[in-house]
Design a binder for these strands. Structure first.
Lengths: 187, 187
DNA sequence: GTCTATACACCGATAGAC
DNA sequence: GTCTATCGGTGTATAGAC
């Protein structure tokens, strides 16, 4: 029988931390293969496009996952303030309390980001627009809502980056708490 | 005569954009050599340690430059609020209005960041402490000052990252304006 | 100080047996 | 679907002439 031993999901889950920690250029096929327990040639069975395909698939998955885990909460049937707070919690969840990075941002910078740069930029612009829309729902004018959305996104990624650079997840944890306090409160 | 044609400074200035745009792993000796107009072998005359030494030197220089251009302004003979505002302007200067990245942050993430990770973390912790001290001078309690310093650093790097990801320097420009407005104002 | 030429390891990728 | 073996190319680094 030709049953596949490993599910594609498991494979992708094993590849993720390699790209996450070494970046696109830093990840080698040898490391990727070792992480999955497969030989290099076997990886090409699952990803005929090689390293670039793996990164591309992972990038799509990461976008979908971040969208699902965080941004989807902006559309829930709740008040806008509560949706914003839950969005922040979702982001916290996605990066595991600041212990993980954001693969979208990481791959968005390597040379893979040059190929998919416009798509990534478009995705972030879309996310920004959706955030801004919810801010507007809380009663803010469009311009102010857009700036608040900018500030929130910058805060999220800025705290995450600083936590990594300072090697202190507390920076992220405390930062998120502060961000949530700065959000429009439920009435 | 054995005069050196190129000054070390000029050399470093030419190497910088390569590491800036491709990261540590992405920068190759061929690109590095081409950027300087030298042969690969000649680069080894100036940097016997090869690529790793180049990155290490550049990292030190970038730290010194950022310190000089931005953080040094925290020690000027002015009121604390004015020093904070001038610090933000200095950061803006350092990253050229959001058009350049921060080499310290970029190299701090590649595999070079693993070797120098503790030094980089220490440097950022020091910068944070110096920022927090100035916030205290404006009358804030230590804890609040530390959190405000966190927020400022996160904002700076977060806006910079988002500007890159969204491919829109306006995000950075407008973000800085907002950050400055959020600072303690001169009395 | 800079060059050409080259060493040699490892990269991403493929062939083909099982 | 996985493997071993190997390809061609490129990466970092060095030797040695000028």
């Amino acid at each position: 029988m030709t049953t596949k031993i490993r599910s594609r999901e498991a494979l992708l889950a094993e590849l993720t931390p390699v790209f996450m920690t070494r970046g696109y250029e830093g990840a080698t096929l040898t490391q990727l293969a070792r992480a999955t327990g497969l030989g290099k040639a076997s990886l090409y069975h699952h990803f005929p496009g090689g390293k670039e395909e793996m990164a591309a698939v992972l990038l799509r998955d990461a976008v979908a996952s971040l969208d699902q885990t965080a941004f989807a909460r902006l559309n829930e049937h709740r008040g806008p303030a509560e949706r914003l707070a839950r969005f922040v919690d979702g982001f916290d969840l996605y990066v595991d309390g600041g212990k993980r990075g954001c693969l979208v941002a990481i791959l968005g910078q390597g040379s893979i980001g040059n190929s998919y740069g416009e798509q990534i930029a478009g995705q972030f612009r879309d996310w920004h627009a959706r955030l801004a829309a919810v801010f507007e729902e809380t009663g803010l004018k469009p311009k102010r809502a857009a700036r608040d959305a900018d500030a929130l996104l910058a805060g999220l990624y800025g705290y995450l980056l600083n936590a990594n650079l300072r090697n202190d997840v507390g920076v992220f944890t405390r930062g998120l708490k502060r961000l949530k306090k700065s959000l429009p409160q439920e009435s």
